[in-house]
Design a binder for these strands. Structure first.
Lengths: 224, 224
DNA sequence: CTTCAACAACCAAAATTTTCATAGATGAGT
DNA sequence: ACTCATCTATGAAAATTTTGGTTGTTGAAG
């Protein structure tokens, strides 16, 4: 498990490295934003501790640049004070968690553990259920060699269904998850996409079916 | 200036009301989520202090329900501990700021002031520049009685332009603001929308023009 | 068993967003 | 002033999302 520390205050960087090493992490430390970015871009790290205030390049800019390059390494942002502004910007920029200075060793380790665990769980980019597989990166649905491409919305609906197989999902929930809780989208819209998906399921000859729960929503069932 | 306090701990509710009243706010206090929601739905308040842990209905649910009804009253969430989970959920649910218990009187007042000031500034839902007006709620662009409706993306581009008249906006910036910093959208997409907008500006006979800054982006100019 | 209202499925069309291809404009370097 | 690579404008088409019916289903109430 390899961690990158990006922190300009030498004493703090030293302390962080020490704590982490003592807990069996491999640690690299760099002392400015530019170096931080180029190290992070190697995509070799399991977690990055990133200070916001940094010479040469602001931590948030580093973060944004990283996410833009689709590097999804979990980032734990170090903020000087508990400044809500920073936190909101940080979330917008793709941070995974925050640590407000000064902090306790235990808290640091707990958060690093939480972030790396999260990543460890992502092994595949496919969801499967019954005879179908849904590919997260290509947005395609397959069944024994047969493929169809899904549009974004189709994919989002299917992902929710396949992540909770046999679980009833209300239309309300689809809408909240996909369009957001403030949208005025009609239920019919869900019905239309369900209709699209059923057609595509039949095109690839799957035995998985989308069952209707009248008055509520839908759920996935393997019909064999 | 009228404030709604939603807090079940009687002592705290009392203290909050007292502090606020002493600072010339009108205060209503209720002691559970359901009442909080129905009071808030009247849309009479300039700010809402909302506890997360509440009997009958969770604060976050109240908040979501409110935003769903398009009530945009600023909400200051009261959280027991500085639980990042709550904060993220809070932001997702439409909270404007947080206050972690226990808190100082000064901090409370400062945040309330910040939130109500923010609202005070929004007087109109129109942006204007030169001979055009851009309506925030109808997504329409007008010039001396002539109207055109803009699509969402057209509107978003126009809003950025008209909010910073004569200011050069890079294509990069349009993309970050509209599609997000992780998108892979092409510059040409912006060019296409600029083209759409120029056409619509000419349809309504405006003298405002979108000027090109080669290699960079665009800016608005009143061409009279 | 019928009736009826609510719900769901689905087709078709409209609206919007995105992509693609091509033609035109620009300006640095010669 | 000419050339060329690069950037921009725009028409047109493709893809996607959303809207509006029409028709078929369902189940509760009578």
């Amino acid at each position: 498990m390899k961690i990158l520390v990006v922190e300009d205050e030498a004493a703090l960087a030293e302390a962080l490295s020490e704590i982490l090493k003592r807990n069996k992490y491999l640690v690299d430390a760099v002392y400015n934003g530019e170096d931080g970015l180029s190290y992070a871009l190697t995509d070799l790290y399991d977690c990055i501790l990133l200070d916001i205030m940094l010479p040469k390049m602001n931590g948030l800019d580093v973060l944004r640049a990283l996410r833009k390059q689709h590097i999804s390494t979990p980032v734990l942002l170090l903020t000087a004070k508990s400044d809500i502004e920073d936190k909101i910007t940080g979330l917008d920029s793709g941070a995974d968690d925050f640590l407000t200075k000064p902090f306790a060793t235990g808290e640091l380790l707990a958060r690093v553990r939480a972030l790396t665990r999260r990543k460890g769980e992502v092994i595949t980019d496919e969801f499967t259920y019954g005879d179908i597989a849904l590919n997260k990166s290509t947005f395609s649905l397959s069944c024994e060699g047969e493929f169809v491409k899904l549009s974004l919305k189709e994919y989002q609906i299917m992902e929710i269904l396949i992540s909770n197989p046999r679980q009833l999902i209300s239309k309300e929930r689809f809408i909240e998850k996909i369009w957001g809780y403030e949208s005025d989208i009609e239920y019919n819209n869900i019905e239309v996409y369900i209709s699209f998906l059923r057609k595509k399921l039949s095109v690839i000859g799957s035995h998985v079916t989308i069952r209707t729960a009248r008055g509520v929503g839908y759920f996935l069932e393997s019909g064999v």
